[in-house]
Write a protein that binds this DNA or RNA. Structure first.
Length: 254
DNA sequence: CGCCAGGTTGTTG
DNA sequence: CAACAACATGGC
C-alpha cells in the first residue's frame, strides 16, 4: 500500500518539525516565527508575501531574500513605493532573483491591481469569496496557480493547498498516479483527503519544500525520511544513482 | 563548466 | 491540451 496523505504529513512533520511559513525578511535574514500561525498577517506582511511569491518563481529563496532586503533598504516595499519606481529601476533592485525584467513588470501589474481595487491593502481581499479572489489573482499577468495559491494561503489565510514541483516529485516517488495530473486535479486530491485547515495546509506545503530539497533531481535517499516508502530509493541505491560529492568528482575526471 | 532553483507566458503541433 | 522555448542570476 502507498502512504496516505495524512500519513505522509505525520512522517514529514515528525522528521522536520514546524516550518512557520511564510518567512518575513528583516535585517537581511528570513524570520520564521511561531506567531505567524497564531494571528493574521498585517497588510505590510501580506504585501511582502505577495511580492515574495512573485520573486521566488523558479528561483532560490536566498536570492529573494537579497531582493527583498534591497527593496526595504530603498524603502519602496509598499504599493505606492513600488509604483513610483520605473520598471527598469525596480528590475535593478531585484536583479539577484533572475528574470528581473519580467518580474518587475509582474510586480507593477499586481500593484496596479491592489491600488485600483483594494485601496492598496491586500488584506481587503479577505472579504471576497475564495473563488472570486483566486479568479482575480489568476487574471493578473504574471500570477499562475502556484503563486495565486501561495498568496491566498500564506498572505490572506484562505484554505487552499499549494501544489509545486516538489509536491509532484515526492508524490511520484511514493507511487501516486496523480503526480503528473494538471494542477487543479492534484490540488483537489489534497482538498478531498484533508480537512480545510489553513495551518495544516501552510505547514504541509512547507514540509514538501523541506523534503524536496533532499530529493532534487540528484536524490539523496539516505537523508530522506521517506526512503522506505519511496519507489526510487531502492532503485537508486542498487543502480548507484546516489553519489557522494567525492564520487561525483571522480566521475567528472573520467 | 553544467545543472538547477518554492513558475509563468507565449508559441506550436 | 501537451510539449517546448524564453526569461536570467547565483550556488555548488
Amino acid at each position: 500500500m502507498i502512504l496516505s496523505l495524512s500519513e505522509l504529513y505525520e512522517i514529514l512533520s515528525q522528521a522536520y518539525g514546524k516550518q512557520h511559513w511564510w518567512p518575513i525578511v528583516q535585517g537581511g535574514v528570513s524570520l520564521y516565527l511561531e506567531e505567524y500561525s497564531q494571528r493574521e498577517r498585517t497588510p505590510q506582511e501580506a504585501l511582502e508575501i505577495w511580492i515574495g511569491a512573485i520573486l521566488t518563481q523558479n528561483t532560490t529563496w536566498k536570492n529573494v531574500e537579497k531582493a527583498l532586503t534591497t527593496l526595504k533598504e530603498k524603502d519602496v516595499l509598499s504599493v505606492e513605493g513600488l509604483l513610483n519606481c520605473s520598471e527598469e529601476g525596480l528590475a535593478r533592485m531585484i536583479r539577484p532573483v533572475g528574470y528581473y525584467m519580467q518580474k518587475a513588470k509582474k510586480i507593477h501589474v499586481s500593484m496596479r491591481f491592489l491600488a485600483t481595487y483594494l485601496h492598496g491593502n491586500p488584506c481587503e481581499m479577505r472579504s471576497w469569496s475564495l473563488a472570486e479572489a483566486r479568479h482575480a489573482l489568476l487574471s493578473l499577468w504574471g500570477i499562475g496557480p502556484e503563486t495565486a495559491d501561495s498568496i491566498l494561503l500564506y498572505a490572506l489565510g484562505f484554505p487552499v493547498f499549494v501544489v509545486d514541483a516538489y509536491t509532484r516529485r515526492i508524490l511520484e516517488c511514493l507511487g501516486y498516479e496523480e503526480a503528473s495530473a494538471p494542477y487543479e486535479r492534484l490540488q483537489h486530491l489534497f482538498h478531498q483527503k484533508l480537512a480545510p485547515d489553513v495551518h495544516l495546509y501552510q505547514e504541509y506545503h512547507a514540509l514538501f519544500v523541506a523534503v524536496g530539497k533532499t530529493c532534487g533531481k540528484k536524490p539523496r535517499c539516505s537523508f530522506c525520511p521517506l526512503s522506505s516508502w519511496c519507489r526510487k530509493s531502492q532503485e537508486n541505491v542498487l543502480a548507484g544513482v546516489e553519489r557522494s560529492p567525492l564520487q561525483e568528482r571522480m566521475d567528472k575526471k573520467s
